[in-house]
Write a protein that binds this DNA or RNA. Structure first.
Lengths: 219, 219
DNA sequence: CGCCTGTTTGAGTTGGGTCAAAGAGAGTGG
DNA sequence: CCACTCTCTTTGACCCAACTCAAACAGGCG
């Protein structure tokens, strides 16, 4: 799901996404601290960014404050994609983040890799629809831990470990659950010896097979 | 959300999506009857199609048969978009359907309109995430009726009317609800005089303001 | 140490699911 | 034309997974 950035630069174009000048120089890095906003719904889009370091969250809010996180952006992910020059969701940093402005060159190869990237994003979203609409709380949490494991897990002896940059509220708002339910699922998985939580934001999967068995239980 | 198809044709390319030869001649029309499958998850992708007439459903299945419809494809929508040459969801016709094979030409303008199309699709999906993860049954149904009204509603005096090509099961699987809950919400809206159901698959919205007020109720 | 923020656990409630049965069309065929 | 069947929808009764509310716990920090 990483953008295959081709190297040759040509005259700028911006008419295919935002049609506003990009105030950030090409390939310029932008650093943000934990919690800083990156853009808001309704903002004029000022080009695309690649997450180089850290993690961001993209989310939608209702008028009364309910929140749905639509995706977490890890290094390699592109943020700011839009079709009409303005953003349709809020985005902020959930850890210290470095972004790289993406050169929107008139390069056909670039356009194709961007198509492939957004198409891959659509595929992931279809999977997440199934999770939100049709999975139980435990299936949601197990699926979440398994997807992260695939993406950022590091083998550590017999187990697979990784950091959770997001807190329980973020996880709940990503999975369409309450924080209490997320916490209860974590506790249950820990009690059954399937995972361990050596630190509050660190996961070790001891029994990957069992975890994957829980991502889609026969009804 | 319609693809702005540009006219000038150039040598074929297919490396940006499916990398298999397209067996359908360019712009050839393909007709399908209600219920016919268009493609399955795992199938080799054979290019893109535009829905010209009728409605299709794109959906994911779990091993035990739970289903989540990820989108309905109306005329103007593109189906078959993928990033790796194979399909990641099932697709079939829910009415008699005509498809048009899309010429995958090396046209930069085409690539950009495809980017804009998929970006718009992402935006719609973000909205649907909020619906699936954070809305009540009544909010889901009201939002669904309102979105359709925007897209295919026809003004009829004081009310807005349209046909529902999908049955209650399809609606339920799109909104992450049971058919009984969908039916109960329809009945409630009817009893309150907000909508009418002159035929089983025809909706008339009598009080659009009230309906829109229900799409996101204060908690 | 005390405070603050985030997490876990417990208790009670409820929205929406399941199961069951009735109703409503749309075919079909005698 | 009507009886019968089949499928889809509606309605009712009941139940449970996940929510809310509340309180305890844990770690980090000034």
């Amino acid at each position: 799901m990483h953008l295959n950035n081709s190297q040759n630069s040509k005259p700028m174009f911006d008419h295919f996404l935002a049609n506003k000048p990009n105030p950030i120089k090409n390939n310029k890095l932008r650093s943000l601290k934990t919690g800083q906003p990156i853009f808001y719904e309704g903002d004029t889009a000022r080009g695309l960014y690649e997450v180089v370091e850290g993690v961001v969250r993209n989310y939608k809010l209702t008028a009364d404050g309910r929140r749905q996180i639509v995706s977490f952006g890890y290094p390699g992910d592109i943020i700011g994609i839009n079709h009409d020059g303005c953003h349709h969701n809020d985005c902020d940093a959930i850890s210290d983040v470095t972004l790289k402005a993406i050169d929107q060159k008139t390069d056909t190869d670039f356009a194709y890799s961007l198509i492939r990237y957004t198409a891959a994003e659509l595929t992931l979203m279809h999977e997440h629809f199934l999770l939100l609409g049709r999975k139980s709380a435990m299936e949601k949490v197990a699926s979440f831990l398994n997807v992260l494991q695939n993406r950022i897990g590091k083998r550590d002896g017999k187990s697979v470990c990784y950091d959770l940059p997001m807190n329980r509220t973020d996880i709940a708002d990503y999975l369409g659950l309450s924080i209490e339910t997320v916490s209860r699922c974590f506790s249950k998985l820990r009690q059954e010896g399937i995972i361990g939580l050596p630190q509050i934001n660190q996961v070790c999967i001891y029994d990957l097979g069992a975890l994957q068995g829980l991502t889609e239980v026969e009804h």
